[in-house]
Write a protein that binds this DNA or RNA. Structure first.
Length: 725
DNA sequence: AATATTCCCGTTTTT
DNA sequence: CGGGAATATT
């Protein structure tokens, strides 16, 4: 047997028939529909290694993952399989940034562009709204941001959108979009969506480059294909146009980023896009117990817009899935902490345990309880670290030094630490810049006469000298450069004075320096620009340590692709999961089904033990509000679920104790009450507003209809919770 | 110019 | 509840 045969065998051992089929497939389009826990990652890594040992060099392979963490894990696993280095494994965004650094000059982009994060973007947008002549009360930066982001994900440029015309709103937004793009261009900056849109447009317009790239990346693998948006879809298609060597893997039931422009149709219509496609279905689950998988399957079966898929496992039955109710979030968190405590006492390890929730804000109560109970934990929140003031300050200096046109960063550091350059002075410089048609930084760095700045002239000169001096540090490796910048800029001295017992900014800065040193060690050829890029593209789960001996907390979105033996999912309440915006009257069915998929993703992360919980009162907007048990809970099969607690056993937690007639005292009516209407049938109170003269309720009926009523006059009768099933 | 205070708004999920 | 911005004070 030759070495090659032996190796090929090694890459196929332990795989099922369909898994082997996927690994052995080399040329032509391949779609792998992979249910949760079906060994998808194993198949992808083996296939990448297989390609690299048979038909291509690692250099010719491009693998796209959803997070940086997934990328580095995949890279490691592929290398462990004996495929040599040199494969490109990255997220779409990282790939986009890389391509634009090298080829961006073809579309007038200089290679030292800055990537604006959400904060920066908001600031620019706010300015754009004002410059365009509108008020941020009519066009909120948050909404406008989403709008423009969606346009970019659909590959609609300013020109495309302006050409569409439309009413006042569309035309105003088009104007704002135009100013926004202009401000970005002037600052030599791109936002997240540009990293995709620019590449897609570049590939569409520049056939020479497209051919060159396709020749390089002969085999393209894309994971989590169900969560690709139009821009990503087009990039993938352009890169594989001639050879059609595209391998898409994913699961329509795990599509949870529709709100971000992801189009589930991309995976559903793969076979139409690529008529020659080979399709492999991986339906056997190796991760979860029968109970957990049964619950997941029952839940997802309620989705109407879905291709039915059978999930099965040969694993043990396992313990039943547990559901419990508590009064409020604190008690819920205490209960979770207690249960974890008990698990640890039985010899379990904290790293086996994860807690998932719908919104980041919900981590707080959990953190407090874990802290109190003495359980070590980590929270998946990569972005939060880089959003800290002190971190943004340090990175601000770096950004200005790398890209002097970056005015968002410049405005941040010009008077941080305070150096006597206040608003008045900045305004004067700004005015001068406009007069002379130059950039802010050009005025500051010019040798010219600063006398127009009056008293502050000296300060500005000093600032200029500081920047000139710091510029030299860019020649140093990132870690050393940072250390020097922190000291010379005066940030170190400033933050030394801000130390308090519960907050130490310098410690965070130190951590940043360490991160830079680590990056430098892992990427010896990378410079400051690459490191800045790295910090801009970091994701929430990227900071999660698999080896750390602690419980992991994260949002359900961040949990995608991971697995844990013991999983808790908290906050199963209507309004939270499924999430509902307040007073959004038309709840889109597809949004609703996406919420169900989100819970499905959460449930299927669990290997052995799954616990779900909900509370009667949840804090929202600083107020405690009555919450109703999530309707998803009633979709779970009774036999596989154990309802904890005596009083609420089997009933699943009755939120009140009065049945039957309309109570004289309407104080007993609240969100979550079950009601019956003589014509409409059974329904659930989803909105409740007590006015001076009457009480208005909004009822969601089983039929799907939703209607408002005035409680005092409506023919509504209270019913028991169970009757709603 | 810098700091202290108040008030008001939005209020999911993230590369 | 918490961040940011507008306002008041030193």
């Amino acid at each position: 047997m030759s070495n090659l045969d032996e190796l090929q065998n090694r890459l196929l051992t332990g795989l099922t028939e369909p898994q082997q089929k996927a690994v052995r497939h080399t040329d032509g389009p391949l779609l792998v529909i992979a249910g949760p826990g079906s060994g998808k990652t194993r198949v992808i890594t083996r296939r990448a290694a297989y390609l690299a040992r048979t038909v291509a060099s690692p250099w010719n392979i491009l693998a796209i993952t959803f997070t940086n963490k997934a990328a580095s894990e995949m890279r490691e696993r592929i290398e462990a399989l004996g495929a040599s280095r040199g494969m490109t494994v990255a997220t779409f965004h990282a790939l986009g940034a890389k391509l634009l650094r090298v080829h961006g000059e073809r579309v007038g982009l200089s290679s030292d562009f800055t990537i604006f994060d959400r904060d920066d973007r908001r600031k620019v947008l706010k300015e754009a709204i004002e410059v365009a002549g509108y008020s941020t009360t009519n066009f909120s930066p948050a909404n406008t941001e989403r709008f423009i982001s969606n346009l970019k994900n659909q590959l609609l440029t300013v020109t495309d959108f302006a050409a569409r015309g439309g009413g006042f709103r569309e035309r105003s937004l088009s104007k704002i979009y135009m100013v926004y793009e202009d401000l970005l261009r002037k600052q030599n900056a791109l936002d997240f969506d540009d990293l995709l849109m620019r590449v897609a447009l570049l590939l569409a317009e520049d056939e020479e480059l497209r051919v060159q790239l396709e020749d390089r990346y002969r085999y393209v693998l894309i994971d989590e294909y169900q969560d690709t948006n139009e821009a990503q879809y087009r990039i993938a298609a352009f890169l594989t146009r001639e050879r059609q060597n595209i391998c898409a893997t994913g699961d329509p039931d795990q599509s949870i980023y529709g709100w971000r422009g992801a189009n589930i149709e991309n995976i559903l219509s793969f076979e139409r896009d690529y008529p020659d496609a080979t399709v492999v279905r991986l339906e056997q689950n190796y991760r979860s117990t029968k109970n957990i998988l049964g619950v997941a399957d029952a839940l997802i079966s309620h989705n109407k817009q879905r291709k039915v898929k059978s999930l099965w496992t040969e694993n043990d039955e396992g313990p039943r899935v547990t559901v419990f109710e508590r009064e409020d979030a604190n008690e819920e968190a205490n209960a979770v902490a207690e249960k974890i405590s008990a698990y640890l006492e039985e010899g379990g390890s904290p790293r086996e345990v994860a807690i998932f929730y719908r919104t980041n804000a919900m981590s707080r109560a959990l953190e407090e309880s874990l802290l109190k109970t003495g359980i070590r934990y980590q929270v998946a929140r990569g972005l939060e670290f880089y959003a800290r003031k002190e971190i943004k300050d340090v990175l601000g200096y770096l950004r200005v030094l790398v890209n002097p046109a970056d005015e968002v960063a410049l405005m941040r550091i010009i008077n941080t630490p305070a150096r006597g350059i206040g608003q008045t002075t900045v305004d004067r410089i700004l005015q001068r810049a406009v007069q002379e048609g130059r950039k802010l930084i050009e005025i500051i760095m010019s040798e010219g006469d600063f006398s127009f700045l009056k008293r502050a002239a000296k300060k500005v000169t000093e600032f200029r000298d500081l920047l000139l001096s710091l510029k030299e540090s860019l020649e140093l490796p990132p870690g050393d450069a940072l250390t020097r910048i922190v000291r010379e800029s005066g940030l170190e001295a400033m933050y030394k004075g801000e130390r308090t017992p519960d907050r130490d900014p310098l410690e965070n800065i130190e951590e940043l320096v360490n991160a830079a040193v680590e990056f430098q060690r892992d990427n010896p050829n990378a410079g400051i620009i690459e490191w800045l890029e790295h910090t801009a593209l970091i994701s929430d789960v990227d900071g999660v340590e698999d080896s750390a001996s602690c419980v992991t907390l994260m949002t359900l979105h961040a949990a995608k692709g991971l697995e844990f033996p013991v999983v808790f999912i908290v906050g199963l309440e209507d309004g939270i999961l499924p999430f509902e915006r307040e007073f959004a009257d038309s709840s889109d069915v597809s949004d609703f089904e996406e919420e169900r998929r989100l819970l499905f993703v959460g449930i299927t992360r669990a290997m052995k033990q799954l616990t779900l919980s909900y509370v009667k009162y949840r804090m929202r907007m600083g107020k405690s509000q009555r919450a109703a048990r999530s309707r998803f809970l009633s979709e779970l099969p009774h036999a596989d679920v154990e309802w904890e607690g005596d009083g609420v056993a089997n009933s699943g937690g009755v939120p009140f104790d009065i049945n039957g007639e309309l109570p004289a005292d309407i104080a007993f009516w609240e969100v979550g009450s079950i009601v019956e209407h003589p014509v409409m049938g059974l329904g659930c109170v989803v909105g409740f507003h007590r006015g001076h003269r009457n009480t208005r309720v909004e009822v969601q009926f089983k039929s799907g209809e939703r209607k408002p009523f005035i409680l005092e006059f409506a023919p509504l009768t209270r019913r028991d919770y169970d009757e709603f099933e």
